[in-house]
Amino acid sequence: MNRYLKLLHMEIHRFRYILAGLMAITAAVQIGVIIRTLVREVAKRKEDILNHQSIDVGSALFPSGKLSFASTMFGIQFWFALPILLSIAVLGLYIFLIWYRDWFGRHTFVYRLLLLPTARRNIYLAKATAILAFILGMLAFQLLLLPVENVIFNLIVPAEMREASYFADVIAANQALPFLLPQNFDQFVFSYGLGFSAVLAVFTAILLERSYRRLGILYAILYLIACAAAVIILPVSNQTYFNPSAYLYPEEFFMIEMVIFALVVASSVWLGFRLLAKKITV
């Protein structure tokens, strides 16, 4: 356990600057676009007030036009989602780099990893845990950023122009947030279970390619196709209108998917451990 934690610390330490950079870009872009949008909207409404001196600001001028944090989130869809998509792309690329940079980096660092006096499965588990930690870390950072952005909203928008928003309304207003944080617990488990099983499947595909080289590319592609078919194609095919006798209730569909996820995770981990122990040599 101690060596596993040291390997995990090493993987997190190697990615720390990129992770901090992604967080900084996310905060800068989202806060910047919120400030720009709110300053423009508040200035526009103040100008309307000057042009309607005799109209009561609280009732006539803004009967349904008060600013709310939820409406602000709805109005900045693209710029709010852009750093999130960038983070997803970088993390997706790092799933490959976390292995390949050890092979193609300076002095083929992977050989030193494989010669460490510890079970090789700890290398696999440390890399998988690190990716999971990066994903959950970015998710937690985004959720912690929302209250900060709400405070900025309250500081910029005068009280007479503000309308209260519930947290659920804020999440639903922006298309990127329900994707990151589904409001339904089953959907949350399904989405992140799918993502985690995909990460482990890619890990095993990489090890197949490293174990068998050119032939391993074919093995890796076939393995990923098999996993995708198991997770997506087979359950969905049972929900088609052309096969009404195989119709599944949502609870049954969810349980089947969870079992398939567990099988994909178990097969990926078992095969990855075996390849590291038996096929990859120094």
Rank of each mutant, 00 (worst) to 15 (best):
L8R: 15
M10E: 11
I12K: 14
R14H: 13
Y17N: 12
I18N: 09
L19W: 13
G21S: 03
M23A: 15
T26F: 05
Q30L: 11
V33K: 01
I35C: 10
R36C: 11
L38I: 02
E41T: 04
K44E: 09
R45H: 02
D48I: 14
N51I: 10
G58P: 03
A60G: 01
P63G: 10
S64L: 06
S64I: 06
S64W: 02
S64M: 05
G65V: 07
G65I: 06
F78M: 14
A81K: 01
A81D: 00
I84Q: 11
I84E: 07
A89R: 01
V90P: 00
Y94K: 14
Y94D: 14
R101L: 11
D102S: 09
W103M: 03
G105T: 07
H107Y: 08
T108G: 09
L116Y: 01
P117C: 03
R120A: 04
A126Y: 05
A126R: 10
A128H: 03
T129C: 04
I131T: 12
A133N: 01
F134K: 03
A140N: 07
F141S: 09
L143V: 14
L146E: 04
V148M: 10
N150D: 00
N150S: 00
V151Y: 05
V151Q: 06
I152N: 05
F153N: 04
F153Q: 04
N154Y: 00
L155S: 12
L155V: 12
A159V: 14
E160L: 11
R162K: 14
R162D: 04
R162Q: 15
E163F: 02
E163R: 09
A164Q: 05
A164K: 08
Y166G: 13
F167K: 03
A168D: 00
V170P: 02
A172V: 09
N174L: 08
N174P: 07
P178H: 12
F179Q: 10
L180C: 02
P182L: 00
P182H: 00
Q183H: 00
D186H: 11
G193V: 13
L194W: 08
S197N: 03
S197I: 09
L200Y: 08
F203S: 10
F203R: 06
F203M: 08
R213W: 05
G216H: 10
G216V: 11
A220R: 07
C227F: 01
A229I: 09
A229T: 12
V231P: 01
I232E: 08
I232H: 12
I233E: 07
L234Y: 13
Y241N: 10
F242T: 14
F242L: 15
N243C: 02
P244A: 07
P244H: 05
S245E: 14
Y247T: 15
P250S: 09
E252Q: 15
M255E: 08
M258Y: 02
I260C: 04
I260S: 06
I260N: 11
L263C: 15
L263A: 15
L263K: 06
V264D: 08
V264N: 09
S267E: 03
R274M: 02
L276P: 00
